[in-house]
Structures are given as C-alpha cells and as structure tokens.
Amino acid sequence: MTNFFKLLRFELDRFFKLYIVLIVVTIVSQLAGLVIISKLYMRRAREEIVVNQNSMESFLETYGQFSLANLTHSLWFFGPIALCIVSLLIYVFFIWYRDWFGKNTFIYRLLMLPTERLNVYLAKAMTIFTMVLGLVSLQIVLIYLEMNLVRLLVPRDFRLDLTIHEVIRSFDYFNILIPDSFLGFLISYGTGLMAVFVLFTAILIERSYRLKGVFIGGLYVAASFFVFISPLILSEIFLPRFFYPIEMFLLEVFAGLIVMTGAIWLGYYLLNKKIRV
C-alpha cells in the first residue's frame, strides 16, 4: 500500500505544473467573465433607464434580471471546463505513452520497481480520478465565490439570487459533474472510473501486440461498451417493460462491475505476462 501511494504522489507531481495552469485558467476566465458580463449588463441598464428614459420595470421585462446563469451560459464559464475535460482525456493516453516514448523510455524503469506492477496501473488511474475530483471541487468553491461576487457587482433590484442547486441546473452538464446525491455521485464517477480502466487496458493491449494491438484494443473497447449497455439492450429489444427500474439499475451496476473487474484483471495480466522490460 505504501508503494501505491508513493507511485500516486509521483504521478501527481508529474502533472502538477499543467494542473496548476488549468486551475489558473479556470479561475481567471470565470471571474473575469463574471465581471465583464455584469458590467455590460449594468451599462445596458444605465443606457435604457438614464439615456433612453425607460423605466426599470420595462428594462427588466425586456432583459430580465441578472443571475449567475448569465455566466454559466457563456464561453467564459464552459470554455475552461471544456479545456479541463479535453486535457484530462488526452492525459489518459499521455500518462502511459509518455513513459514509452519519453526520454530514456521511462516505462522500463517504472516496471522494474520492487512493487506489484498492478500498483503502477492503479496509481495512474487514481491520478486521473484525483485530478477530476480536484477540478470539480474547485468549481464548487468558485460557484460559491461567484454567487457572492454577483451581489457586489449587481444591485439587488437588478439581480436574481440563485441557490447552488439552481446554478448547477442552469448548466446542462453539471448534473453529471456535480450530482445532487451520493448515489448520483457513485453512478457518474463510477462509470467514469470504469471508462478510464477500459482505456488503460486498451492501451496496454496496443503496447503488448503493437500493430495488431490497435485492432484488438478497439475490439476490446467495443466489447466492453456492449457488455455495459447489454441490460439496456435486453430491456428495450428482447424483454420490453419486463424489469422494474430498480432491477434495471442493479443490472447496470452488475454489468459495470463486470467491465471494471475484467479491465483491471486483463491489465494485470498484460503487465505481468505480455509487456517485457
């Protein structure tokens, strides 16, 4: 276990600089975006009310009250989130291929460490998972900060104060990134972790069999996806309206556990039997 945490810390340290860049870009973009959007809103309000002599009620009827939803619907908000998601998706592949194609082929030294090779596999997966949780936690803190900043930038009569749940619902993908229940958290992040394990194992298949491995790895990913959605296929095509919702949920959980366990076992097998150092 000690070796696993050492590997986890090592992998986190290797991504730390880029991780800080993502954090800074997210903070600066969202806070700057909120200031700019709110200033533009208040400038428009002054033009309509002071210059054009329209009433405040007329302005609010036309433009609506300002809320944090004005920010969440803008590129200032979802742009850095998309950047973080794309960066982490790329890093799922980079975290392995850097070790093979980087300076001095570091993978050979990594796999020769006096520890179970599975620890290397699990440490890389938990690195991705930890970074995702860190960015999501940052976003929750930012939302609370932005809610208070709105109160400073926009007068009470012109703004609509939203709760944290209303802000989350105002951004379509937040229900996946920030579920509103512990069960939703387990579903969203359990599925994401399963996908990381499947991709890791596909990479190891490619590294084990090289050119043939690209085709085999693609088939493996497709087969894993099929197993995962097989309860839905069974329910929709072969046994429509046969299962209760709770039964469908349990079948999906079981299918996900099969896929995840199979990915970890196959990754363990490849690291110990097929990949040579």
Results as ranks from 00 to 15, higher is better:
199 L>N: 04
220 Y>Q: 01
233 I>E: 09
169 R>Y: 12
93 F>C: 10
186 L>R: 05
61 E>G: 07
183 L>A: 11
144 Y>A: 08
25 V>M: 09
272 N>D: 15
97 Y>D: 05
52 N>F: 13
220 Y>V: 02
6 K>Y: 15
206 E>D: 10
17 K>F: 12
63 Y>V: 05
177 L>A: 08
247 E>P: 03
195 A>C: 10
133 L>C: 10
61 E>T: 06
81 I>V: 09
8 L>D: 04
209 Y>V: 12
240 P>Y: 03
69 A>H: 11
173 Y>F: 15
188 S>Y: 04
175 N>K: 12
63 Y>T: 05
12 L>P: 01
57 E>R: 08
239 L>M: 12
276 R>L: 15
149 L>W: 01
37 I>V: 14
224 S>H: 01
179 P>Y: 04
251 L>S: 03
42 M>Q: 05
81 I>M: 04
112 M>Q: 14
93 F>L: 15
132 V>P: 00
158 F>S: 09
158 F>I: 02
27 I>G: 05
94 F>V: 13
43 R>P: 00
177 L>M: 11
193 L>Q: 08
24 V>G: 13
238 F>Y: 13
156 R>S: 14
91 Y>N: 07
137 S>I: 06
146 E>Y: 04
194 M>N: 04
170 S>T: 01
56 M>K: 15
196 V>T: 10
122 L>V: 13
247 E>Q: 15
250 L>F: 13
110 L>R: 11
209 Y>Q: 07
171 F>V: 07
48 E>I: 01
155 P>W: 02
156 R>H: 11
181 S>V: 05
43 R>H: 13
148 N>E: 14
167 V>Q: 00
267 G>F: 01
240 P>I: 03
144 Y>I: 10
190 G>M: 04
265 W>S: 10
125 A>W: 03
46 R>P: 00
216 I>F: 04
217 G>K: 00
167 V>H: 00
